[in-house]
Each structure stands twice: as structure tokens, then as C-alpha cells.
């Protein structure tokens, strides 16, 4: 597969590049690197670039470019030294209060893997995760891969409302819901950080290609951080009207 990704039309204004067919950090880094490279070598008519696990969608303006011109442009970029493109070294540290009302599924995850809730926390905070994709809902960050001892299938019936900041496990991935939305991941905790804020640009805290690490905090600490975060939001909001 590597060396010759497939390029397919996705309608009449976008192409889809398939770099592989699995969720795997190496393939995802390739997608990220290619997207950065393509962004730096845009030609007129190239629009949004939307990376995912192993695919990249590129919008184009058919008034300026034909499919084969876009394809040719993309192919010319495969040759360049992709993997030498800069990889964001920043690791974002995410405070999380685990269990209880904040992570109602932590006991299920523990039982499913025949370990204790404390061990779930230990294992979840042990790894540094690559953010594969942002955007199942606004700002949602899907990352992986979680240690095998905490992998858990999604809920049979998704919840109608998952609170913003919820940290979940979905199969081999972990992820954070940035805004309140429906969702089927097993919730193990919640972060007080505001991960989606329309007053910020970009509005999403995470970008695909970021790295993240979680650390446990207490309930008191969570509530304190939440208040601080809301003060910042209110302050930004007031700035807009002054």
C-alpha cells in the first residue's frame, strides 16, 4: 500500500486519498505529514484539507482544476520526503477526574478487563497518545492506542447526551467529547479544560497530529479548574463587547 496510495473521486469537488485501511499510528502520521506538505504546496483551486485515520479528503474548485490535475498535483507530493516533514513534538497534558459521576463506565471497563478501577486509571495515564482525528462532533479528539488491558467495546446503545469534557474509551481508542453530544464511548472521566470555544481560533483545542497525556486530579481540583475556565470564558466574552 505504501508508496502508492489510492486516489478516488469523492463527488465532483473533492478527492479522497487512501493511505491505508487500518487505524495505525504510522499510517496516520503519514496522512498528517502529507496534509501539512500539501497545505504548504497548494496550487490555485485547492480548498480544504481534511485528514482522518488513514485517509485525506481534499476539496477543489472544478472551475479551476480537473480531477486529473488534482490527482497529478497530489502524486507529485508523494515523492517529496514526507516523513522528514516536521512532526509536532508538543504533548498536551490533560487533567482528568476519573470515575464517579464524571466517569460512570469506569467500573464496567475494569470488570470487562478483570482489573480494578485504579488500574484503569494507571493504564490510561501511562501512555502518550497520538490524536488521530478531530471531529466526530465539533472538537472531538480521537486518539490511541490504549493499552490492551483497558480496551473496551462501545456501549450497545449510545447515550443521548454526553457532557462536554468527557473522556471515553471506544475499542482501542480513547477520546474526549469537546461539546455535549450523543455518544457511545465508555466514559471513564472528565476534564475541566474547555476543548471547544468559538471565541478561540482555531476553536478546537486539539488538532490531528497532536500528542496528549492524561493525569488524574481530584474532584475538588476539577471544580476549581472549571470555575477558573468559566472566568476566562466570561472575560473573553466581555472583551468582545468592550
Amino acid at each position: 500500500m505504501e508508496g502508492s496510495p489510492r486516489i478516488l473521486p469523492a463527488g465532483d469537488q473533492a478527492i479522497l486519498i487512501e493511505f491505508g485501511l487500518e487505524i495505525n499510528p504510522a499510517i496516520n502520521r503519514l496522512v498528517q505529514a502529507f496534509a501539512r506538505n500539501a497545505d504548504q504546496h497548494r496550487i490555485p483551486g485547492i480548498g480544504e484539507l481534511i485528514p482522518s485515520y488513514c485517509t485525506l479528503l481534499i476539496y477543489y474548485d472544478p472551475f479551476l482544476l480537473s480531477f486529473s490535475q488534482v490527482e497529478q498535483w497530489a502524486r507529485s507530493l508523494f515523492g517529496s520526503n514526507l516523513l522528514e516533514a516536521k512532526i509536532s513534538p508538543e504533548v498536551k497534558e490533560i487533567p482528568v477526574v476519573y470515575g464517579g459521576l464524571y466517569g460512570p463506565d469506569i467500573e464496567f471497563v475494569a470488570r470487562h478487563n478483570q482489573i480494578t478501577a485504579e488500574e484503569v486509571v494507571q493504564l490510561h495515564t501511562r501512555e502518550t497518545y497520538l490524536v488521530y482525528v478531530v471531529g466526530f462532533s465539533p472538537g472531538f479528539a480521537a486518539m490511541g492506542t490504549v493499552p490492551s488491558k483497558i480496551r473496551t467495546p462501545r456501549l450497545q446503545t449510545p447515550r443521548i447526551k454526553v457532557p462536554a469534557g468527557s473522556v471515553g474509551i471506544g475499542g482501542i481508542q480513547t477520546g474526549i467529547y469537546a461539546v455535549e453530544s450523543p455518544g457511545g464511548w465508555q466514559l471513564i472521566g472528565r476534564t475541566p479544560l474547555t476543548l471547544f470555544d468559538l471565541k478561540r481560533n482555531p476553536p478546537a483545542y486539539f488538532q490531528a497530529g497532536d500528542y496528549a497525556r492524561f493525569y488524574p486530579i481530584s474532584e475538588e481540583e476539577f471544580e476549581k479548574r472549571r470555575i477558573q475556565e468559566s472566568e476566562v470564558i466570561i472575560k473573553n466574552h466581555c472583551k468582545m463587547f468592550n
Partner: peptide
């Protein structure tokens, strides 16, 4: 499939075989 970005007007077919056309406010992936 492994989740991938969706272009406007894409027609996905879930397990029940009934198509869904994804439009202006659709999820991105």
C-alpha cells in the same frame, strides 16, 4: 469502514441498506 471525511452530498449506506444523503450541517466524518 474506518471513519473517513465526508464530502457534501455523499450518500452513505449503513447496514440496513437504506441510503442517507449527507448535507449542509452533516458530521464531518
Amino acid at each position: 469502514i474506518i471513519s473517513e471525511p465526508i464530502s457534501r452530498g455523499a450518500i452513505q449506506v449503513p447496514g440496513d441498506g437504506l441510503p442517507i444523503i449527507l448535507l449542509w450541517d452533516a458530521q464531518v466524518s
